[in-house]
Nucleic acid binder design. Structure first.
Lengths: 238, 238
DNA sequence: CGATGACTTGAGTATGGTCAACACAAGTGG
DNA sequence: CCACTTGTGTTGACCATACTCAAGTCATCG
């Protein structure tokens, strides 16, 4: 079967590489992932991928675009729990009949695909578990940011985190990446107002630590910034 | 075997009830849990149950006492990620060779026990997964608290959360529970200073919403407080 | 070209932080 | 038994970080 042979020899979709790098996958696993990625689905910007409290039917992988887990308070205050970037999973629950713990909204046009069931392969099951652990580690980082960092530290720490995560799928290089979200959205993730986020960005720009324009971000002094905000690498297993 | 018969008919340790209520356990599962709980281990207040970055060797259950996941910044700022109460798990990872994502420190004298391996029973595996999902739901709540709530809302929301969680093991009743932590510790969880936590507690006391003294807490107006802070019930599966 | 959404900047304000002093209870050692 | 220490809670005065409100710029797009 020519198709099979071609599929096995061809590379995985960039968004699948992060997952694939976590474990040793055999050919049938890689095949299953490739077939999954081939059936992509698109969601419009501002569309909802998951709704809080509703059942989760499948495990999705983000192939392209940015999304966010969002919670809205009664009076309209909005908190972004975390960002979901290409290579990240959505609805990655390991228990039966899970309910979405938060709404997931597309921040840009999004393409996703359904992933193979965990029961089909121990390696995939392990990869899903590692992905969940990684996501949890980023939730902890978010808690520390919101609880104990100043506004400018929050902004810089988030920009570093986004860079690190985008590097895994080749979407960031040399401290440079596409930044498709508004300052208002950043503010909702950082527990700040957009006005203040803007001022903090300006400050970092004037300190020559940051450059940005029209949907792109450049961290000019990565090492310095990492040191200043005390950012540690995220590792979830030996 | 008399011992077996007695064990099966006797009740589970209160701290095990939360776990047991999540799934249907058969007699051998219940037996395994009872045996686990019988081998308890104690940790002194201020002792560390887990250290950030070190391998996790086993899955623990807290039988009594309070602990906290803690992260310390370079300059000494401390953030408590979440509280670990009786019935909660420690080191509940589903992937291989996990590393601790944060230090867990005992806030009071603590008793814990090692839990049976997930591979021994699908029901236990499911219970562990549900416990992990529940813990994640509380991390989301913590993020919203820190990101988008005012100081007084943070304090009241945390006190409601602690009440709800303690109710599951019978440690809270009628809005009344033992509160073994200092205002300084609460401040480190809430991203505030202890001075300000004190002022917020005083305010709630004067509004007749709260009463507390010498290590006990009483929420005088649960329904009112829940409404005001917009607190929703935590559900992770259908 | 007007409409829109995002970004920018300034002026004034408020929430929560800092610093300091003190109260009070529970040890602890002389 | 009493000084002394230590940890926790309490209160006041002052301050700074971040918010609010408002106006204005700029690019994009129908």
């Amino acid at each position: 079967m020519t198709v099979t042979a071609i599929s096995i020899s061809s590379d995985l979709h960039p968004a699948l590489r992060r997952l694939a790098s976590m474990v040793d996958l055999d050919d049938s696993d890689r095949m299953a992932l490739r077939n999954a990625a081939a059936r992509e689905r698109t969601i419009k910007a501002r569309g909802e991928v998951l709704q809080e409290g509703k059942p989760i039917r499948e495990r999705l992988l983000v192939l392209s675009g940015w999304a966010a887990r969002v919670r809205i308070l009664q009076d309209g205050r909005r908190q972004i729990i975390n960002f979901t970037l290409p290579g990240d999973l959505i609805g990655n629950c390991s228990h039966a009949n899970p309910l979405a713990s938060s709404t997931i909204a597309a921040l840009t046009p999004l393409t996703v695909c359904a992933l193979p069931d965990a029961a089909t392969s121990p390696a995939l099951c392990e990869a899903y578990a590692m992905s969940a652990a990684t996501e949890e580690a980023y939730l902890l980082a978010q808690i520390v940011r919101l609880g104990r960092m100043t506004a400018s530290e929050r902004v810089e720490d988030l920009l570093l985190e986004l860079m690190e995560r985008l590097e895994l799928t080749g979407l960031a290089r040399n401290g440079h990446y596409a930044m498709p979200i508004t300052q208002e959205t950043m503010a909702d993730a950082l527990g700040l107002t957009s006005v203040h986020v803007n001022r903090m960005l300006q400050r970092s720009k004037q300190a020559k630590r940051l450059r940005w324009a029209r949907g792109t971000m450049e961290i000019a002094a990565v090492a310095e910034m990492r040191r200043d905000v005390g950012r540690m690498p995220v590792r979830v297993s030996q």
